[in-house]
Nucleic acid binder design. Sequence first.
DNA 1: GCTACACAAGTACCT
DNA 2: ACAGGTACTTGTGTAGCG
Length: 778
Amino acid sequence: MSHKSLWIIDVSAEQVNGSDEIWVWGKTEDGKICILRERNQKQKFYIAFDSHEKVEKAKKYLSTIPGVIKCDIVKRRSFGIEKIAVEVVCLPSKTESIVKAASKLEGEIFEDDIRFSNRFLLENDISPSSWYEASVEESDLKPSDGVDETYILKSLRKLEISTLPSLKIMALDFIYYSEKGTPTPEKNPIIVISIALNDGKRIQLTGDEKEIISSFISLTKEFNPDVIVGYRTNTIHWSYLLKRCEKLGIKLEVGRLNSEPHQSLYGHFSILGRINFDLKDYADDIVAIQRKTLEELAEYFGVSMNVEPVDEFFYSKYWRDPNKRQILLKYSMWRAEACLKIFETISSEVFSLSSITGLPADYVFTASPAFRLENFLMRSAIKTGELIPKSRERLAPSYPGGKVLSPKKGLHKKVAVVDFKAMYPSLMLKYNISPDTVRVLPYEGEENVVVVEEANTCIIQDRKGFFTEVLGKLVEERDRVRKLLKQVSKDSAEYRYLDAVQKTLKVLANAMYGYMGWIGARWYLREGAETVTALGRKVITQTIEKAEKMGLDVIYGDTDSVFIRYDEQKINELLRWINEDLGLEAKIDKIYETVIFTEAKKRYAGITTDGSLDIVGLEAVRGDWCKYAKETQKILLEKLLKGEKKDNLLSFIRERALKLKRRQVNIMDLVIWKQLAKKLEDYEVKAPHVAVALDLLQDGWKVEKGDFVGFVVTTGSGPIHTRAKHYSKASIDEVDVNYYIEKQLVPVCERVLSVIGIGPKEVEYVAKMAGLGMEAFF
DNA sequence: GCTACACAAGTACCT
DNA sequence: ACAGGTACTTGTGTAGCG
């Protein structure tokens, strides 16, 4: 027996000579890749009954089924109800048939839907992307092809190390060639693979396709990366490569042990022994990234764009043009390099999320936030004796949410934004709100409860709920990590990692309310979520009433924030009252020097005391308005907030309208982007972006749900959808300037100026008359 | 057949 | 494929007119 310190890359389920094994893939401190084979992992499920007799009977019956290794009668809980259950331990290969036999009994079956490799992780509380000390013995499996050592696993002990191992990272970009339309692997070859390695090497493969792929495979074997990163690799590239390889008779052996990528859950690709990370999954998670392009993601992280970007609609044009091919090649290499830099930037976040939730690093962002939290909850459940419920089909009745005030329209000076700190998690903790503690009224049980009339519920107080337990641990752990952070140098790798950990813990805590109200959740309890929002509304209402009673001027409020005319003393008094009387924490989030509100909720703009411009909800921050209109609104807002007079504002609008009329605008600044939120065939009305998408489809472009469609409105008559044209096919000369004046420029300006009493007619007049020789009248 | 209007569909935002 | 609350544009159906 010997010991090995290692960082877990991934865990896979394998069959060796007909028996099931778990392989733990690790990287040792000295950079060796090893496989630890767990040969004794079994499957497990529970079947719960309402009487002791039935349990005994079931146990007897189940024990006789071949493949069942052990049956025990155990006590567990589910949604706050005590359960007596048979715990069935069985052979992985026989589980399906055993569960089938068990389902004929009149009990409720739990945890038969936990997959083998996850069972291993949950039960032993083992997380990928974490350090462990392993006790191991020699294994007869010969190390080969990317693997240095193999062992038989005896036990794993978690190590508290908050740094990452040195990982080999390979970033990729691919170009396929299609004369016209989206390339399809059935017809169109791979023409470029750009590779950026984190040892500094840059390789660009072009030429004969077979050679490109073969070189790519041998390069991968030689470099032996721990991480392969790209953009849209899960949804496009791996399946494209696999299909091309199939056509050419090549095996795409890019995984360790010469394995090929294989598609697993939800279309995600697994590459054995490596982390296959698709940055698109990460981009999808960031709301600030509107069109989900690699360029936007790079910009978000400050990765510079030092080459000329090429739009995918023009790839083939650039490739065919001998003068432009170099530009395309450079751009492709930039993409690979950008992927490398971005991954390096986010690695702490990725690995801390993986380590805390227990999901493999390459799956953690492919999974939705709810599934990440759910995996985390499942680990906690196993530790606390809570059976893991199954998600099932149910109706999804809606329930009331946060309270939103109508703002006081106008330009306000010195406004403080008072925020409740983590309102929903705090309420859940304070009142013990959890799927196992919330009951619908009338409550007839014995336990002490807090009644929440507004939600027609009550909350049991005599025992700590499952979510309360988890939430408490999340908060405690976050506090602990934040204390640790203070002792670590800010520019160290350890700081970055620990900071990512504390952020992850916060994200998980914040997700618990939404998760409880999510119809697909294993621990779904609408009444629980309803109780949280009801208490939230109560708290904000009381705060507003208190503030007004104190003589404070409340200007706006939304869910957990209140905008109040600044009065330092009184606001501090209010904060104290919130703390003492409501038992919650609130703080001044920011103070606006000037802030404007229209009559609309959720839309305002202001300049804070530190001089930064905030724009909230208005067109300037929306992805579905053209850049020219957005920019106009932003500048106009800034001018207005800084006190510019009406005349100057109007002449600015005139200037912008004139420029548009003279077509002195880049056509890309007039593109309106909209996402296809559903499948093309599911649309009921002919919206402009849908019409454009159908047109692209005609031309051989693949357009599907989730894609962003960019179009401009061209001149002509009839509804907009007949005049909307994809930007790749339109020129500035055919743009309908009037549409842009009337439907883009005027609305965004009017929205702002209405605040200071300038009506729509006036704005429209100024914009429409621009350049018509009427300037002398203004 | 046209216009005005109300309403539905659709998207993206806020907390 | 975490929640509900909200604004706003475009398309569509139709009442009312003549």
